[in-house]
């Protein structure tokens, strides 16, 4: 251990920083607890924020001890990675942009620097400068780790939501005995149309459906690719012995289809879901009679 009281003899800057961090752990954590990053995340009690700050300081000291101040993958960070992710996620939920988050992370630096200067005021200016630079690099690495963790957290969220969207977006509705319908909403890409096809065909098997209605009221645009997907689905349903009806083609989309010269000749189309249902019921030989009419005639 280097002699501090003498003021002259300093160890290597990294060792000095490590010792400083261990010595001033409590004070740094206390000051960080007042910074917006910690204050807004740990709203329950100040002690909680202080504890979190201490954990981060410990991690920094461990990284400095391992002489890896520039390495964001250093083992020391793994202990606080989850905590940083939680803090990052909390700030992101509060509506902060990544640059604002980076600003809040940068705000952790001045209090530490002030403490360092006060702590090493006996040291020669050269040694102080070196320590300050090392500590700055170390905190820079911490910022990098925090931003990395926060961003990967966001990516994981996006992946999870995409998966949920895929599941949610393709419900198969039983309209009648032997008639199922799929209301399509949103843009149809290859992945989604594949899911639509599979769920529709499975529903046809499970519900013994003779008719399947594809309602495209919620599809904003129909291009040649979407039309191809539709025709594939219709052809697959026909191979299985079910008749497929496409409904909900809006006037604008009908115009687009004609302008593009797409041939939907093999596909049975109806203007609305009601028309399609009426067609299927008629084919099934089911008649719907208004109760009041039949009652009145009796």
């Amino acid at each position: 251990m280097p002699e501090r009281e003498a003021g002259g003899s300093l160890g290597t800057p990294t060792d000095e920083v490590r010792d400083f961090l261990r010595r001033r752990r409590e004070q740094i954590a206390q000051r960080w607890a007042d910074e917006p990053l910690f204050r807004t995340v740990f709203t329950v009690s100040r002690d909680e924020a202080v504890e979190a700050g201490k954990a981060v300081v410990d991690a920094l000291a461990q990284v400095a001890d391992a002489q890896r101040v520039e390495d964001p993958d250093a083992a020391g960070f793994s202990a606080v990675r989850e905590q940083l992710a939680r803090m990052g996620a909390a700030r992101a939920r509060a509506g902060l942009s990544p640059s604002q988050m980076a600003g809040e992370l940068a705000a952790l630096w001045p209090p530490v620097e002030n403490l360092l200067v006060a702590d090493l005021d006996q040291a020669p200016p050269q040694g102080l400068r070196e320590c300050s630079t090392t500590l700055s690099v170390l905190l820079g690495t911490l910022r990098l780790v925090a931003m990395q963790t926060a961003l990967s957290e966001g990516q994981a969220l996006i992946d999870r939501q995409r998966l949920q969207l895929l599941e949610v977006a393709t419900p198969v509705i039983k309209l009648w005995d032997g008639i199922v319908a799929v209301p399509l909403i949103g843009t149809l890409d290859s992945a989604r149309s594949q899911v639509v096809m599979e769920t529709l065909l499975n529903a046809v098997v499970e519900q013994h459906a003779r008719f399947a209605i594809l309602d495209i009221t919620g599809v904003p645009t129909v291009d040649s690719l979407v039309a191809q997907h539709l025709m594939k689905t219709v052809a697959a349903a026909r191979l299985m012995g079910a008749e497929c009806v496409v409904s909900g083609i809006r006037p604008a989309i009908a115009q687009t289809i004609v302008h593009l010269g797409l041939d939907l000749g093999t596909v049975k189309t109806r203007a609305s879901l009601a028309d399609a249902l009426g067609h299927c019921l008629h084919e099934l030989g089911t008649n719907i009679v208004q109760a009041s009419d039949s009652a009145g005639r009796r």
């Binding site: 096809m197 065909l201 191979l239 299985m240 012995g241």
Partner: peptide, 13 residues
């Protein structure tokens, strides 16, 4: 032709 499986129908298409 009766009872084609969904996977078979998709493959054929």
């Amino acid at each position: 032709l009766a009872g084609m499986r969904p996977a078979v129908a998709i493959t054929l298409v």
